[in-house]
Nucleic acid binder design. Structure first.
Lengths: 350, 350
DNA sequence: ATCAATATTGACACCGGTTACCAAAATGAT
DNA sequence: ATCATTTTGGTAACCGGTGTCAATATTGAT
């Protein structure tokens, strides 16, 4: 029974009650709460005892007012993939579970020209300890500059290091995409198609680089007809599938820049009665729920998004706040993505 | 240019600055902020003018301290479907967009026996205006009782009215499931299988009732072999599919209690080379992203989750806070789900 | 014009912590 | 024992709003 059960109307004990019970001043209690070093072991014990007895919990609103800073972490996101956002949230929450912090969620509207003003107002009002920026909005330098300007700590999450490690958590997508494509090549694929992500997205660029790298290593090239545009949406996958699979010499494998588009390509394959993976291998990226809900199950790259949430939170939280397992300063902030091979891939059969 | 651009260090104006500029007391400014009715038009105008000039934004922390309540809405959820949670979040955010409120997210761990204590501590610390309870945790009466006890407003979201309209937003799932099943019957299906949701879940019970209703109306019954257990997971769909489709006289249509399980059944059909929808029609529930990412696209029931978020927020927020489009008191709090017919359904061909 | 009744406004304490600053106590050096 | 130095505790002010209740302005009736 950790918490004191209190009925309705049972008022929360305040710092004054604790001080009275411990026989010290409220300032001393405050020192204990904030882990000041100038305290006798005896005093500290007495105060901690009183806190325990009363079940005292410092009022965050009062602390926020005095500190001029709320004990909140803001999560700014505009990622359309719900699972990604939620997994990241979960990671953040894992990290701050036993702390005094809470998570404030704020989707931002990248399209809007008032975006920066909106975020500014939000940050000025809520005064969070810091902000976590999820891609693609994390790639916006103005936003990072805004945080700097407002004195709000921030961590950018991305597919590749964006900045110094203090402000960035990322994964090695390029390498792992290359690894996945190498796997296709090792299986004997020579005609490999590519479905791009949207222009101007760092994640899309990284995936493309990895793809090209692996192709180049094997001395293969990418015919223009095998290089289909995309925007991370299912419908773009359908269109790319229609285009690539109608060619007189279609690819035997297609790498799609995300799972949704891969699902689209697979739908087209089904509609055209093309056997997957017999006649066509497909790889996606994200390891979204979709990847395992389609048939055959999609080979994909798992982005360690939840771990990145943990890491991002630990990087964000300043040292003076207690948080289990602070991040090692020397850490580069790069986490590993992993290639997951499932049934959508085999050697080409012809 | 809505917000005043301020460089680093430019301090926020306070209520005192506004009072001084408008030549009134800070209390009067407070009255304007809180839309008190006892104010001359003249005073109000003067204060509003001063607020505008200074670009004053009331400090939420100070207000929270004085009000003894934070201007936050807490979202308590344990729904495994990320899209559902995020859509709901989006609805809530739509509703509170132009208000002073912000959204605090808090997943709860239904399994844990400390769950109630954790939530209690959370609510006592954060002191949100109110809490929104997403299913299935919304079905927990202890949680609602806890909110009552702590004086925290709450709204429960569910598949059927749980309580009085003041505390509940729901959808008419039962009716719409019945409608979907009637559609199958109208197409000529007589052997219709059912994949249940997990025991003890209100949503599962409602869907089952709707299914049974439609069957009963048509004078059909559900053989035990056609009634498969499930737990809303993809793997349960696989198991159910294996069971139902291995029968010597398999159903010509299967209603699954959610989309994930429907995707599982569809995978089995593909693996067994059973044509969907020719030899097997499948219906799911949720209209999750999966529904349109599998092939053929899944007929399903769309749960108006985002609208429910809007409604829930409007129901939750007390009258004294300004919020566009408050909910009509006389409203029952029931929103309409809709049956969406896609390619996974046709008349039975044999 | 006068007075009571009512509508507005303001003074001041308070929400529950923190910081600034000073005093008191403890410690060590001479 | 005395004095300088280091810890520790206390007081008051403050963070930026809101509640209470009395003071003042306005209105209508006489």
């Amino acid at each position: 029974m950790a918490a004191q059960k209190k009925g309705t109307g049972g008022k929360q004990p305040t710092i004054n009650d604790v001080a009275a019970l411990a026989g010290v001043s409220k300032k001393t209690v405050s020192r204990v709460i904030n882990r000041s070093e100038f305290l006798t072991e005896k005093t500290r014990k007495a105060v901690e005892q009183a806190i325990e007895t009363l079940g005292f919990v410092p009022n965050p609103q009062a602390r926020a007012l005095a500190f001029r800073r709320n004990f909140l972490i803001a999560l700014l996101h505009d990622n359309p993939n719900a699972q990604t956002v939620l997994n990241f949230q979960q990671g953040v929450l894992d990290a701050i579970k036993d702390s005094d912090l809470a998570l404030l969620v704020r989707p931002v509207d990248r399209g809007s020209d008032r975006m920066l003003d909106d975020v500014r107002t939000f940050l000025e009002k809520q005064r969070p300890i810091g902000a976590l920026l999820l891609p693609p909005i994390s790639e916006n330098d103005d936003l990072a500059a805004l945080c700097e300007d407002l004195g709000v700590r921030y961590v950018r999450v991305g597919s590749a290091p964006l900045d110094d490690a203090k402000h960035c958590v990322s994964s090695n997508d390029r390498e792992v995409v290359a690894e996945a494509v190498r796997a296709l090549i090792a299986l004997g694929h020579r005609r490999i198609g590519f479905v791009r992500g949207p222009q101007g997205f760092r994640s899309a660029a990284e995936r493309e680089k990895g793809f090209m790298e692996a192709l180049a290593e094997a001395g293969l090239d990418l015919p223009a007809a095998y290089n289909a545009p995309g925007n991370y949406r299912y419908t773009a996958g359908i269109e790319a599938g229609e285009a690539l699979l109608s060619l007189s010499l279609p690819p035997t494998a297609i790498f799609c820049s995300n799972d949704e588009m891969a699902a689209g390509v697979m739908s087209v394959a089904h509609a055209k009665c093309i056997d997957v993976p017999g006649a066509l291998s497909i790889i996606g990226f994200d390891d979204s729920p979709t990847a395992t809900h389609i048939w055959p199950a999609l080979s994909t790259v798992r982005w360690p998004i939840r771990e990145m949430g943990v890491r991002a939170a630990k990087t964000l939280v300043p040292d003076f706040l207690p948080l289990a397992g602070k991040v090692d300063e020397s850490d580069s902030g790069v986490l590993n993505s992993t290639f997951i091979q499932r049934q959508s891939v085999s050697s080409p059969q012809r």
